[in-house]
Simulated scan of single mutants.
Amino acid sequence: MNEGHEEPPKLPIRERSSRPGTGRHRRPLPANLPPDAPALVLAVPGKAEEVAAEVAAIVRLDNPQIDLRLVSLGDGGADLTQEFTGIAAERPTAGPAAVVVPLVTGPHPRVLRAVRDAVRQSEAAVKITGPLGPHPLLAEALHVRLSEAGLARADRMRLFNVTSPVDGIIVATAGGDEAARGADATAVLLAARLTLPVVPAALDGVPTVRDAAERLRKIGANRLAMVPYVIGPETDQERITAAAEAIGAGCAAALGAHEAVARMVCVRYGATFGGFEDFDDLAE
């Protein structure tokens, strides 16, 4: 207690750092891109319908400086080849004309093969990014989808005094066996968030959703939930619903146009150049 008349010394004021943010909340793209920045091409498995259009709209809203093109792979890649050729004709030949981001969360051989074929046939200078995942942002989005469906706790701060509605989670992928293997890291990230066993499965490969369910039940997890680790165009919704019903599991919605998906599109585009400092050095 201060018994005198002097005021206690004031604590120093902490000033905000002038450095740009770091970590996963850092802005993935600079506010001003060079005028010759490559186009961002979103390659969509199947038809470029509502979900893909919503993802593109979010990217454009947050990054109006990007020349974004939305292209469907529904025809096997012919439209993508034509798009690359047109973009290359509009841009200087010294640097890459476009960066193509496949709109998939993990390995998807059919999609990636179609993209590579389109690049080769167009003979344009195009860089291909990896899939959007794995990444903590996508694991967080899966958690959100589970909580929206009432299949997981929404509050991570009360993990030890709130009963979980399920005791095992299946992360269901599309893209065959390779996609299921690629979802291992995401399953680990989601398990850490939920403190529950989480295993990956393929809607169109092995391990199947039924295989994953049997694996969970062998360790005592009988109340199961499935969360589709897909954006939407990669697979048919009926296949997702049927897979969950066949094992008696609750099912969350696909990632869809979650903000994390749009952000990861920008992360993949931006990471291709590591800062956008000199496009002339990036020609292939």
Rank of each mutant, 00 (worst) to 15 (best):
A225V: 11
G256T: 05
G23V: 10
D211H: 09
A98T: 15
A97L: 10
S17W: 14
T173P: 15
T195S: 05
P12K: 03
L203N: 12
G86S: 06
G4L: 06
R113Y: 04
L255R: 02
D280Y: 09
G21E: 09
A192W: 06
E234L: 14
P165T: 01
A149R: 01
V59F: 14
Y269P: 11
P109C: 10
E15Q: 09
R26W: 13
G256Q: 06
L142G: 06
E238P: 15
E3T: 04
P12V: 02
S72E: 12
A252L: 12
R26V: 14
R263V: 14
A262C: 14
R223Y: 11
R69V: 00
A53I: 07
A149L: 01
A180N: 09
I58R: 13
N161I: 13
N161T: 05
L216S: 00
A43H: 03
R116V: 12
A149C: 00
N32Q: 11
P28R: 01
P92E: 04
R153E: 03
A52Y: 10
G106W: 10
R24C: 13
G220W: 03
A244E: 07
E245H: 00
S18T: 04
A180S: 11
A174N: 04
L11Y: 02
N2V: 10
D204N: 12
A154K: 15
A221D: 02
H25F: 02
V162N: 02
A179K: 03
R210G: 11
A172R: 03
L80P: 08
